[in-house]
Nucleic acid binder design. Sequence first.
DNA 1: CGAAGAAGTGAATCATGATTCACTTCTTAG
DNA 2: CTAAGAAGTGAATCATGATTCACTTCTTCG
Lengths: 210, 210
Amino acid sequence: MAYRETDRVRERKQATRETIVTTALTLVSEGGFNGLQMAQLARQSGVATGTLYRYFPSKEELCTAVFEYATEIEVAQVQQQLQESQQNIPEAIANALTTFATRALKAPTTAWALIAEPVAPEVVAARLHYRERYAGLFAQAIADGIAAGSLPEQDSNLSSRALVGAIAEALIGPLAQHSSAAPEQAIAHSIQFCLQAITAKPYSMTRSSS
Amino acid sequence: MAYRETDRVRERKQATRETIVTTALTLVSEGGFNGLQMAQLARQSGVATGTLYRYFPSKEELCTAVFEYATEIEVAQVQQQLQESQQNIPEAIANALTTFATRALKAPTTAWALIAEPVAPEVVAARLHYRERYAGLFAQAIADGIAAGSLPEQDSNLSSRALVGAIAEALIGPLAQHSSAAPEQAIAHSIQFCLQAITAKPYSMTRSSS
DNA sequence: CGAAGAAGTGAATCATGATTCACTTCTTAG
DNA sequence: CTAAGAAGTGAATCATGATTCACTTCTTCG
């Protein structure tokens, strides 16, 4: 034999792979996973379409890789915010939500792609994993808050989901469209909304009907 | 001339058009607008593909019609709930949210398609209109509640959006996936979450950081 | 160098699915 | 009943975009 993969080559391939993934993420942030086209991705990545297939067996697997990459970034951001201000749980949650919302606002299509775009089964599986991690992060914070006495008794898992959901979806309207007023204000309001929800005493209905 | 459209024909065409739209909605509820295929739709509607084009100039316009049709149904449901129990605004909102959530739970893909699926520009325009109506409905209810003294002072428009968003998105997780526990419980919790948010006194942070 | 073994290329091929259109089958009114 | 005017049909055509592959260009190492 006369050829054996060397470090230099390994690094170059690694770099190419990263270029492909990050470029793909840029495209996803414009048109979602369904809008991602292999030819365009290849062009913008500076490689030939065939090369994409040297790195990923199919578009589906490429999408999964992009999904996981983007996901790691988002989760890390939120996790970092939650770890700061451990002393004041509500504040920590507020900061994490702000981070989450701000990032979503800046890249609404990306947020949507990660959260709800209908994609191939394989990618959905990755999303499931991602949501679990996310929910877990907030659930832990809420549980800590309850233990520390800074939050009232509640189902931390359900509140956690509602929290993320409230912020995520509540933002879609204000930004995706006419984005007339200041999105900043919308964020602040949504967070206020969430804090009230998790810090308030349960609301009891006078009477209920189905 | 020897042919002039008569009532009988007009009615039949009307019926066919409705069949196409309702059938299309069924398909959308399975795979979203992107999953809608003209050939399949024609087959299930009992007409030829060419016929679809006698009724709609393009798939895009067909989708818009489907969107508006589905939208009317959803808005009407929520509106009805809000009009009952005018006396007790929080309860009315809770009921409306329950309706919204329950329906979304039963048809998650439809809900997603109406709310966030990336679709053609024309359809997006219809969605914008729809969201406005929706938000307006809740905003009015909240404003009424403030006026009646049953809700504290707040920006009814922003709360309205957060409300719908919290329910809509918070539900996606629990149902789209492992749907382990009772989705009923998730709904109840989310609504409780929302009621606390709009009925509670604003939460004030000890100190804030960016 | 030179051969072996990859990695890279991009035009050609395939698959999918929207749209068209020449033709057939009603409907209507005289 | 018949001609005019639609409505309905579905195979053929087009457009789009993923995937393949025969070929070219590195890389490595004896």
